[in-house]
Design a binder for these strands. Sequence first.
DNA 1: ACAAAAGTGTTACTAATACACCCATGC
DNA 2: GCATGGGTGTATTAGTAACACTTTTGT
Lengths: 233, 233
Amino acid sequence: MSADTDADTGVSLAVSTVIFALRPDPATGLITLWLPLVKRIREPHEGKWALPGGPLTADDDLATSAGRTLERTTSLAPKYLEQLYAFGAVHRSPGQERVVSIVYWALVQSDEAARARDGQNVAWFAADDLPALAFDHNAIVEYALWRLRNKMEYSRISHAFLGETFTLAQLREVYEAVLRRPVDPANFRRQMASSKSIVATGRQLTGTRHRPPRLYRYNNAVQLADLGPLADH
Amino acid sequence: MSADTDADTGVSLAVSTVIFALRPDPATGLITLWLPLVKRIREPHEGKWALPGGPLTADDDLATSAGRTLERTTSLAPKYLEQLYAFGAVHRSPGQERVVSIVYWALVQSDEAARARDGQNVAWFAADDLPALAFDHNAIVEYALWRLRNKMEYSRISHAFLGETFTLAQLREVYEAVLRRPVDPANFRRQMASSKSIVATGRQLTGTRHRPPRLYRYNNAVQLADLGPLADH
DNA sequence: ACAAAAGTGTTACTAATACACCCATGC
DNA sequence: GCATGGGTGTATTAGTAACACTTTTGT
């Protein structure tokens, strides 16, 4: 760390956010991962879709800046937010100015995301079927997807897609949608039970076509994800 | 991402590196984790020890900048280098200028690190017994240690501490030093064998006090660590 | 009664662990 | 030979996965 400023070097700093939500695919009806993108209204890459973000403002922490971007583009609050990576290849932005992007990734609750309407220059896309995006944003989303799917296997972030209470089938549906493979209901139930991350509310979900499933809630004594010493923030 | 520069906002960008090597503790003789620190020769935090680093230069990629820092402070080449985190809390640097630090962590070969001599303002410290460092660098090292120890359990980075060939006892010693717990030699052998990450050279290490151990080398077909889509860089 | 999803039980398999034991070398 | 670390064998355990089976509701 030094007192030199980047005014000298001409490196600018931006914060972008990869925002994931689960939505039913209009074509197949299956639940899949979606994310909101913003259409660029000026060069470089004018007209292309890009991750929502903007320059780091002087009085915002990095995560605060990412959360603000999320609120601005989706009018939603993240249920999970984590730093993804800092991208800073010299030539990643065409033109004279070099841009280093610190990218966050976020999960928003599915039912809230379903209510979010597309804005003027904002649209939601299926995460696994994106068009050619601006800058290196395709690679960034690919990495975010990899991280999400990895973290799904060894943490409790699945809860971030759901509301206060949920059935085991709903929670399992989250796993199956993100990991794109079937999960055995019997074994899933036991894994969740032994992990202590869910608590039975005693209530049941009524109005289903068949046997009413029990409702559970997240056990707040368990962290969503183990961030180690970083958890303090 | 935008065309605005941080010259407006007064945020400066630095790259620092946490450099780990294994060394015998002069007091106990046990192999432990060490890292080089640089004494600050100007405010803020003049006189305190800090992570090696400096402002991001305009024509270096982030990892290149981290590697350059490493070479400058230790005259060594990293056998493993990975981005750790971007630290950007508003008030992490006292004074008027805000600094965002993109921190890398690196592993250097133990025997090379043993030859490295302390420079004018550079000294090596036991990673688990650091003095009060400048800025938030204590927290950064703590996080780097957490990441290293985690990664030790599910990747092959242990090889980065060793040379071209090594015995299983040497590799096991790396695990024990980093994780600070004994590892069963018999089970360790089988784990390494089944992981396919080591290959027997056919040669043996002679000159030991007892039965000569076989020499192995790293299987380059296996990645040191799974970085996912990021592995391309 | 029947269909369908909720939920339980059982078995097989795999990987981690603990530890007894044999092997090869220097002294 | 004997001490010492190198190296092999084996039993126990815990966790994962596959799948048959029972339960409870709406229709």
